[in-house]
Simulated assay, not measured.
Amino acid sequence: MKTWSYLLAPFAAWLAAGCLKFVINSLRAGKPAFGLIGYGGMPSNHSAIVSSMAALTALREGLDSAAFGVALTLAFIVMLDAASLRRQVGRHAQALNELRPEEKARLRERMGHTPFEIAGGIAVGCAVAWLLR
């Protein structure tokens, strides 16, 4: 079970964060929000995935293990990317969509995450890791 939990953790975190995101978006929209599934929103799927692996590694191998250092580094890079680069890409898409409102193929504007959405992903990932430890 030890090895399988390392394979299961990212998938379970992705599934949990995705389902939670669908429920939150549906409650906000007042109807099923299938169109809001994807990048962006609360909680961050990417943060949940990498946090589940980092947290599971910390719980299993310890905070001073090389494996945890690698997992933490990867998680940090992914979360920085979600909060900065991907968020800026979303802002650029919004500006481009405003410049060309007649275009049928609009660019996806929901790309990055706020710090709160990333924290939500971390919480989901850590919860999944705790359940699988």
Results as ranks from 00 to 15, higher is better:
Ala9Glu: 01
Asn97Val: 11
Val78Ile: 15
Ala12Asp: 07
Ala123Leu: 15
Thr57Gly: 05
Pro115Gln: 07
Leu99Arg: 14
Ala16Met: 09
Ala55Asn: 05
Phe22Asn: 10
Leu27His: 04
Leu107Ala: 09
Met53Val: 15
Glu117Trp: 02
Pro43Lys: 09
Thr73Phe: 03
Ser26Ala: 09
Glu117Asp: 05
Tyr39Val: 00
His92Leu: 11
Pro101Asn: 14
Arg86Met: 07
Gln94Leu: 04
Ala13Gln: 07
Ala82Met: 09
Arg108Cys: 05
Ile49Asn: 01
Ala9Trp: 00
Ile122His: 03
Leu74Arg: 01
Ala9Thr: 03
Phe22Asp: 07
Thr73Gln: 03
Phe34Pro: 06
Ala123Gly: 11
Pro43Ile: 06
Pro115Glu: 06
Lys104Asn: 10
Ala9Tyr: 00
Lys2Met: 07
Pro32Lys: 11
His113Pro: 12
Glu61Gly: 02
Trp130Asp: 15
Asp64Leu: 09
Arg108Phe: 07
Lys104Ala: 12
Arg60Trp: 03
Phe68Glu: 06
Met42Arg: 10
Ala127Ser: 03
Val89Ala: 12
Ser44Ala: 08
Ala29Arg: 14
Ala33Lys: 01
Ala123Val: 15
Ala75Asp: 06
Ile118Trp: 00
Lys104His: 12
Ser51His: 05
Trp14Thr: 00
Met79Thr: 08
Ala29Lys: 15
Leu85Ser: 12
Arg87Ile: 03
Ala95Arg: 15
Ala48Gln: 07
Arg87Glu: 10
Lys2Leu: 06
Lys21Leu: 08
Arg106Val: 12
Met42Ile: 06
Ala67His: 09
Val70Ile: 14
Val50Asn: 02
Leu132Phe: 09
Thr57Glu: 11
Ser5Ile: 04
Ala93Gly: 06
Ile118Gln: 01
Pro115His: 08
Arg108Ala: 12
Gly18Arg: 03
Pro10Leu: 04
Ser47Pro: 03
Gly30Thr: 09
Ala9Met: 02
Ala119His: 01
Gly121Glu: 01
Met111Glu: 05
Ala13Val: 07
Ile37Phe: 10
Ala54Phe: 01
Leu63His: 05
Leu131Phe: 13
Gly112Asn: 14
Lys21Tyr: 05
Ala83Cys: 08
Gln88Cys: 11
Gly121His: 01
Ala127Asp: 01
Val124Glu: 04
Ala13Met: 09
Ala127Met: 05
Ala17Gly: 06
Glu98Lys: 11
